[in-house]
Write a protein that binds this DNA or RNA. Structure first.
Lengths: 190, 190, 190, 190
DNA sequence: GATGAATGAGATTTCATTCAT
DNA sequence: TATGAATGAAATCTCATTCAT
């Protein structure tokens, strides 16, 4: 991940706070630069336009999340264990960086984020996709369509993080375990 | 659900299309009225402001979805069967009305939708919440925190609809069954 | 020439005055609308941008001038007489509408006026070009390259108008005659 | 003419190219310094402001032209011959330095060039004015108002240069002769 | 002298909303 | 009700200029 210049970082973080609170459209660039403690012109030294700013922010956060997982992950041969570790890391990222998570959720489908930037962001997760695929091929996971599997996995992860953040259960690894357990064993009682 | 006047409906549907394609902030009211085939002034005969239009649209869609489920649902005593029917209906709504679904997903967290409208919209689903609760109490579902359960349920539903809409699997009830099966039995292979 | 709408005309005339006095770059659109007595937004109901405004103005003035000549001109078979009438009309236009003339002179080579608009403007004068050509072919004019002839003709016309306007000789048809005479008979004394 | 410092000259020439291509108002100082290969700050070591740069450029070009004529001119007692030599020199300058010529033509009426600078520039040509006056008084030229004479002279010169530059007739002294001939003998065929 | 990041006043443009018809 | 030209506050963005290094 490219090292951010000090003012560039201040601008991105200011934008993050404000976009999360007021949305893109209700956050004038003037507010962003004020919040970042720089002048209105400085924003345009680092970003070509407001749109580019939001795209950069999106890419930054996606990279941040991918890096967090990649750095802390060792991928054991026991795929169930491996999946659980990934699970744990992704969820942890979600509650350790709740602002990042909120932004990603709010804007990932937004027409602001252009297709190109989305592709770049997705590419960051390739290493994960590969591991999931290997896990499936190993047979440790029940027979499911691969893409459906990925989509559901992500859906439950996001649901878990939302639940944790809403109820302030940040420290509680128990919740992570239980939600993984739900995913693994299903909700069926009998 | 209140009967919409012809121009009111045209305006809402035009707004829906444009918001989905360009987002709120890239959709001026002038474009909405043009797309709806009415004059700029007319929009303000039906809605007090752009904000109110957005909120009305949100409420309309939520009601539409709730009504769709309510109308087609009978809730049998076999809770598993009941859950599956709900599941099927919600997913069906999602791919029969993909524009509605997309709007709900994209904009449900937007600061434009005000809290009050969100509460109103949620209330529409009370009947469902009650049924889920009864199901859990009956023991047919494994012991899980009730809110986590609801959140995950919704997460998997949404994931399923996205998967179906992305891959144009609208007619294929098989996918619905399989995803319910994943939810019920988990992904664990052994 | 398309009939201008009242505010459109006010805007064009305001722009004309201000561009002539301060130049394009030193005339903010806010000044133009104020001078025209309309709001800042109204300018953009009639012109897509400041650039389009200046191009429209240019075209308008070129058309105005061409129409002035066309309307008052009968083209006799005596080409010398015909040339003189054209001469007189063009020069008269120049001092009857000095603001128009000044604008045309200042901006005709400016990069503001885009090529397309220039072509359109030139086309307005086709009828004149044709007449000049016929005159030359008739032999009434000495053997000169056609394009050089046109360029010089225009050069002397413009010089004449500038001289007249600078010295406030508007009414004095004598000057027109004398300058035509210079053109026709040259400056050579013996 | 004061010797220019290397960066000063680079800046003036860069400005010349850019002004000719894009006009004053589409040429930010940042572009000028980039084109000149110096930093934005350096421009302000040599010129107090953008305005001053423009005025310096104008004066430089006027001096350049005057010097070119003065250096190559000998003024014979035969005034017709003298006029022709001046004619030839001015036109030659125009096509040997087409960028200079274009700038002078395009921007000589601009409100950026301040009156003072214009006076300074005109003074450079005093020697020429004096010679013309002497020629007229000698009777070699037909009886014409002196100012009208000068204006027309200039008009035909400029027309000639434009014609030459447009049609790439740079080397062709024939054109110069013919246009002088037109001036001297007029266009009248009989 | 040379640099170029930072500045911020000011320009252009947008667009939700109004209101006379 | 329906219209759409007009409005003007507010947003985005530019760029001449400065100044610490």
């Amino acid at each position: 991940m490219r090292e951010l210049q000090p003012k560039e970082e201040k601008l991105l973080m200011a934008a993050l706070r404000l976009f999360n609170e007021y949305g893109f459209h209700n956050t004038p660039t003037s507010k962003i630069s004020k919040e970042a403690g720089v002048s209105t012109g400085t924003l345009y030294n680092y970003f070509e336009s407001k749109e580019e700013l939001i795209n950069s922010l999106y890419l930054y956060i996606k990279q941040h999340s991918a890096e967090y997982v990649r750095e802390n992950l060792d991928m054991p041969d026991d795929y169930k264990e491996g999946l659980k570790r990934i699970w744990t890391l992704v969820v942890k990222w979600g509650f350790e960086y709740p602002e990042f998570f909120k932004f990603k959720e709010s804007f990932c489908q937004s027409p602001f984020i252009d297709k190109l930037e989305m592709e770049k962001a997705k590419a960051e997760y390739d290493f994960l996709g590969n591991y999931l695929q290997a896990a499936m091929e190993s047979g440790v996971v029940r027979e499911i369509d691969e893409e459906l599997f990925g989509t559901i996995l992500q859906g439950v992860m996001v649901a878990t993080i939302k639940y944790i953040n809403k109820n302030d259960l940040g420290g509680c690894t128990d919740t992570i375990n239980r939600s993984f357990d739900v995913l693994w064993n299903g909700i069926g009682g009998r």
